[in-house]
Amino acid sequence: MSKKVVTFGEIMLRLATPGYQRFCQATEFTATFGGGEANVAVSLANYGLDAEFVTRLPKNDIAHSCEMDLHKHGVKTSHIVYGGDRLGIYFLETGAVARASKVVYDRAHSAISEIQPGMINWDDVFRGADWFHWTGITPALSQGAADACLEAIKAANRLGITVSCDLNYRKNLWKYGKTASEIMPELVAGCDVILGNEEDAEKVFGIKPEGFDVTQTEGEVNAAEFKSVCTQLMKKFPRAKKVIVTLRGSINANHNTWGGVLYDGNILYQSPRYDITHIVDRVGGGDSFMGGLIYGLLTYTDDDQKALNFAVAASCLKHTIYGDFNLVTVDEVEKLMSGDASGRVSR
C-alpha cells in the first residue's frame, strides 16, 4: 500500500507574464495554479504516493477550476473546507540574466487567511496518514491560519505521524502584527524534519552559518559551512531528527548552482552539485526539493544519502518545467541521479 502524505496551506491562481515580459509590457497573463504545500502534493502524487492537499476555498468557479487541476495531477482534495470570498492571486514577472524575477501578491482576505481552528477535523484528515507537511507561508497569512496549523501539528504529533516543515520565510506576508520569530518556534517544535535555506534560518531564528555571507556567493556555496546551521536548529528543536539545507548559488536569473545537505545529528550528507544553466522556471524549486525529499525518506528508508540525492535531482529537473508544479516521474529523477544529464531524446 502506498504511503499517505497530507499537506496543508494556501493555493493561488498564478498569473504570469508571457515569456520574459515585464508587467508594464504584458497585455495578457498565463493562468496556472500553485502554492507551496500544493506543489509538494503534486510531486508526491506524480511519484505514486497517496497525496492529499487540505486548504479552505471559496465556493466559486475559479476555486472549482483549481480543484480540478489538482485532481488532474492525482492529488486528493476530499478534506478541503469551503467558505470565504476569494482565492488568492499572485502575479509573476520572470527575470532574465541580471534582472531578477518579481512577484506581486493579491491574497489579502483569501479564504484560507480567514480560517479558524476547529474548521478542520484533523483526526479525520489524518486517518491512515504517514506524513504531514506544512510550510512557514501558512502561519504568515493570519493568526487564524497559524492557529489552524498548530492544531494540525499537535494532532499529527498525538497520532504519531511524521511532521515536516519548510521554513519558507516570506517577509512580505507577515502583516498581521506578529513576526515569524514570535509564531514559528512553537510550530517548528513539533517537527521531525526541518527544511530551510540559510536565509530562512537567519531571518526566523537568528541562526546563521559561521563566517558566511549569503549575499556574496557568486555561485559558490560550501556545503560544510552549513553544518553549524543544522546543529543550531537541532539544539533549538530537539524533536527534529533531520535538518536539511538547500544550497542555491545564484550566478544570474537564468544560471544557478543547486545542491543540499542533510544532517541527522551525527553525519552531514552532501549532495552532488548541479549547474543549471538555462532556467525555465525556478518558482516551486524548493517545493520540488521537499516533495523529492519526502518521497526519498519514505522510500529509501535506510539511505539518507539517496533520499537527499533524489530531492536535489528532482528539484534540478523542476527548473526546466514551466509552472509551479514539478511534473516529473521517479524514473526521470533516478535517471538524472545515475548521471545521465544528456537530455537526449527518449524514444
Rank of each mutant, 00 (worst) to 15 (best):
S250F: 11
A100H: 10
G9C: 04
L262S: 08
K242G: 02
A98Q: 12
G160A: 05
G323F: 04
S2T: 12
A152K: 06
T17K: 04
V163Q: 07
R99A: 08
Q216H: 11
A155W: 06
G260R: 06
F91C: 00
G36L: 06
L15M: 08
V188T: 13
H73R: 09
D275L: 02
A31H: 08
L44E: 05
T17V: 05
R99Y: 13
N309Y: 12
P18F: 06
Q232D: 13
L70F: 07
A41P: 15
D124H: 13
D281R: 03
G136N: 07
M119Y: 10
Y20I: 08
S2F: 14
A313N: 14
S271E: 09
M1E: 12
L44G: 02
A16C: 04
Y269R: 05
W174E: 04
V261T: 10
G296D: 05
R86T: 00
K178S: 13
R282F: 12
G249H: 11
G74D: 01
L298W: 07
V75G: 01
N39P: 14
K102S: 11
Q232I: 04
K102Q: 15
E182Q: 12
A189F: 08
L13T: 00
C66D: 01
P238G: 00
N254A: 06
L87K: 00
D303I: 04
A341M: 09
I321G: 01
G292I: 02
A155V: 08
L297V: 10
P238A: 00
L195S: 08
Q232L: 06
L327T: 10
H278L: 04
R239Y: 11
L233D: 02
T32G: 05
A311F: 08
G19P: 07
R282Q: 09
Y176V: 10
N309F: 13
S315Q: 02
L317G: 07
